[in-house]
């Protein structure tokens, strides 16, 4: 052992209370998933910040690249007709 083999990195997601999404809070090192959850409890929920924890080994996350931003997100820019304010209705029309 010990030729600098290290615990892998895990990304931590916490649900702060039921009814809300799990949200990324940071990362930590752990030997396996069980330890990642235990460590996440100690590092990220010392003050009742969570009711549920997800852990994912960082290497399993595929992220979009900032270079792709234009091709991914720009097409939404010119589609104002996807928003309710695009449509003009007279004030007399209620509840819409």
């Amino acid at each position: 052992m010990s030729e600098k083999k290290n615990w892998p990195l895990w990304e931590i997601f916490i649900r702060s209370k039921n009814g809300l999404n799990h949200k990324h809070v940071g990362s930590l090192h752990a030997a396996d998933a069980k330890m990642a959850i235990e460590n996440a409890r100690d590092v990220y929920t010392r003050r009742m910040e969570g009711v549920s924890i997800w852990v994912v080994e960082s290497e399993h996350i595929t992220a979009s690249s900032p270079n792709q931003s234009e091709s991914l997100f720009d097409p939404a820019n010119d589609k104002v007709y996807r928003h309710p304010t695009f449509y003009n209705l007279p004030d007399e029309v209620k509840h819409m």
């Binding site: 290290n6 615990w7 396996d32 330890m35």
Partner: peptide
């Protein structure tokens, strides 16, 4: 160090 090594060995075995 031995604790970190042992935890890794244990995880690998499992």
């Amino acid at each position: 160090q031995w604790v970190r090594d042992a935890a890794l060995a244990h995880a690998e075995k499992r």
